[in-house]
Simulated scan of single mutants.
Amino acid sequence: MAKTMRRGYAPSPFGQLHYVECGSGEPVLMLHQTPRSWAEFAEVLPLVGREHRAIAMDTVGFGASAKPEGPHSIERFADGVEAMANALELDTFHLVGHHTGGVVAVEVAARLRDRVSGLLLSATSFVDAAKREAAAGRPAVDHVDPKPDGSHLVELWNRRRGFYQVGEEAALTRYVIDALTVLDRVEEGHEAVYRYRMEERLAHITAPVLAVCAPDDHYSLPSLEKFKAALGCETAVLPGGHVPVPEQLPGEFAEVIARWVSRSRR
């Protein structure tokens, strides 16, 4: 039976934050990658919502959430997540973060500690001194300069074309839409990741942690062993997929979430 998707807005110090939820029961809050929106979990939500209250929010500065001035940071993104959790009266909740969302989830779990019942890090970069140093000269990930003839739209498409299989153009189109929504600040989420001092926050996490990654996501796959060494957590390689694995394998991704929530109940 299809689950009804419910949209809403929650107050925050930055303005209103947009979210979509589905189902009822134990809350599972999902955080997207940069420069995406809740739509990254559009097919995952109703599957997790069969047994839980599945919530996907738009990070501060992205999607339909408030877009405050000033530099973004992982700490600011986490402020938004905390405001969302408080507005929705989530006394305790399970937290799922994908790519940038995973880095934000680390900060949230370090702050809220026992309010986070379980932490699932999907394709999350392990950000340490070596990662920050390597990022200093990296090329832009998603930035394109607008062109009068619109050719920047094709450039934006091609930035991530290699992550998607033939037949997954609808998912790639959703990426382009999300990126265009924040085109003038599209790199800031990536920049925030590489400034974050994650290694100073890991010891504050009290929730059980599972770190997973798609086998073709060579950007994040090496981080699994680093999280395992730092946190003593479980790790798993998903059965397929690349950077956009929640859209490529929504059923498998939702099943991983459901199993982890069941195991990490307090």
Rank of each mutant, 00 (worst) to 15 (best):
residue 87 A to L: 12
residue 81 V to E: 02
residue 89 E to N: 14
residue 68 P to T: 02
residue 69 E to C: 14
residue 83 A to C: 10
residue 89 E to F: 11
residue 110 A to N: 15
residue 107 E to C: 09
residue 61 G to F: 09
residue 67 K to G: 03
residue 106 V to T: 12
residue 57 M to R: 01
residue 106 V to Y: 01
residue 59 T to G: 12
residue 58 D to Y: 09
residue 108 V to L: 10
residue 73 S to F: 01
residue 106 V to N: 02
residue 103 V to W: 07
residue 87 A to S: 13
residue 87 A to R: 14
residue 69 E to G: 15
residue 104 V to Q: 06
residue 70 G to P: 04
residue 109 A to M: 08
residue 72 H to E: 14
residue 99 H to M: 12
residue 87 A to H: 14
residue 59 T to H: 10
residue 66 A to E: 08
residue 78 A to W: 07
residue 72 H to K: 08
residue 94 H to S: 09
residue 81 V to C: 02
residue 99 H to R: 15
residue 65 S to R: 04
residue 80 G to W: 00
residue 76 R to C: 05
residue 96 V to I: 06
residue 94 H to R: 04
residue 103 V to I: 10
residue 93 F to L: 05
residue 93 F to Y: 04
residue 102 G to D: 05
residue 88 L to C: 06
residue 66 A to L: 08
residue 108 V to A: 03
residue 63 G to R: 08
residue 57 M to Q: 04
residue 89 E to A: 15
residue 57 M to G: 03
residue 105 A to L: 03
residue 90 L to E: 06
residue 60 V to C: 12
residue 71 P to K: 04
residue 90 L to C: 04
residue 100 T to F: 11
residue 83 A to K: 03
residue 60 V to R: 09
residue 96 V to L: 13
residue 110 A to D: 14
residue 109 A to H: 10
residue 89 E to M: 11
residue 63 G to N: 07
residue 65 S to A: 13
residue 97 G to E: 12
residue 108 V to G: 00
residue 91 D to H: 13
residue 57 M to E: 05
residue 101 G to A: 05
residue 80 G to N: 00
residue 71 P to M: 01
residue 70 G to W: 04
residue 105 A to Y: 08
residue 111 R to Q: 13
residue 90 L to R: 03
residue 104 V to A: 03
residue 70 G to F: 00
residue 110 A to V: 13
residue 66 A to V: 11
residue 79 D to Q: 15
residue 102 G to N: 02
residue 67 K to A: 08
residue 72 H to V: 15
residue 87 A to G: 07
residue 83 A to W: 10
residue 77 F to V: 01
residue 68 P to V: 07
residue 93 F to N: 07
residue 81 V to D: 00
residue 66 A to F: 10
residue 111 R to V: 00
residue 96 V to E: 06
residue 103 V to T: 15
